[in-house]
Computed example of a mutant assay.
Amino acid sequence: MDAVPLRLNPGDDLRAALDAARAAHGCEAAFVVAGIGSLSTARLRLAGAKEPQSLAGDLEILTLCGTLSVDGSHLHMSIADAGGRVLGGHVAPGCIVRTTAELLIAWLPEWRFSREPDARTGYAELMARKA
């Protein structure tokens, strides 16, 4: 395992930047161990919802974690708005960094993550295999 800090810049799409970092690193498996920062736009799919909800304004990333794989990322995040209200859910494309996002990525070169259909859940779920 190789843990590496990553900083995203204003205007970056959080999810797209993480997927690009995974591809650039050439690793097929990684965890986002931690993340903090700010967003101008957040798109979160709340528990049980079919579509993501959009929020705009001065938003703080309180927590960010998840998996990165060749089949896409699975990320969860909690954010707070300027009034201190907290919301969390699945990270959808379109979360735009406002000032910074500071992340810790754990690259796992000895593993391969994929997402495969699971009849029990009805979703494509994580499959972790030794590379």
Results as ranks from 00 to 15, higher is better:
1 M>Q: 12
1 M>S: 09
2 D>S: 06
2 D>F: 08
3 A>Y: 09
5 P>N: 05
10 P>G: 14
11 G>S: 14
11 G>P: 00
15 R>Y: 00
16 A>L: 03
20 A>P: 13
20 A>M: 13
20 A>D: 13
21 A>L: 04
22 R>F: 01
22 R>T: 02
23 A>Q: 13
24 A>C: 07
30 A>I: 03
33 V>S: 02
34 A>L: 11
36 I>Q: 07
37 G>I: 04
38 S>G: 15
40 S>W: 10
42 A>G: 05
46 L>V: 07
46 L>C: 09
47 A>K: 12
47 A>L: 10
47 A>C: 06
49 A>P: 05
51 E>P: 10
54 S>P: 06
54 S>W: 03
56 A>N: 15
58 D>T: 15
61 I>M: 12
61 I>C: 08
65 C>S: 13
65 C>Y: 15
67 T>P: 02
69 S>Y: 09
69 S>C: 05
70 V>S: 08
70 V>F: 09
73 S>V: 00
73 S>M: 02
74 H>D: 12
75 L>T: 00
76 H>G: 13
77 M>E: 06
77 M>K: 02
79 I>R: 01
81 D>F: 08
81 D>M: 05
83 G>M: 09
83 G>V: 08
84 G>R: 11
87 L>N: 08
88 G>M: 11
89 G>K: 04
89 G>Y: 04
92 A>I: 03
92 A>D: 00
96 I>R: 05
99 T>Q: 13
101 A>K: 00
107 W>N: 04
108 L>E: 08
109 P>D: 04
111 W>P: 01
114 S>R: 15
115 R>M: 09
117 P>R: 07
117 P>Q: 07
119 A>M: 13
123 Y>K: 14
123 Y>V: 13
124 A>M: 10
129 R>H: 05
130 K>C: 11
131 A>T: 07
131 A>N: 12
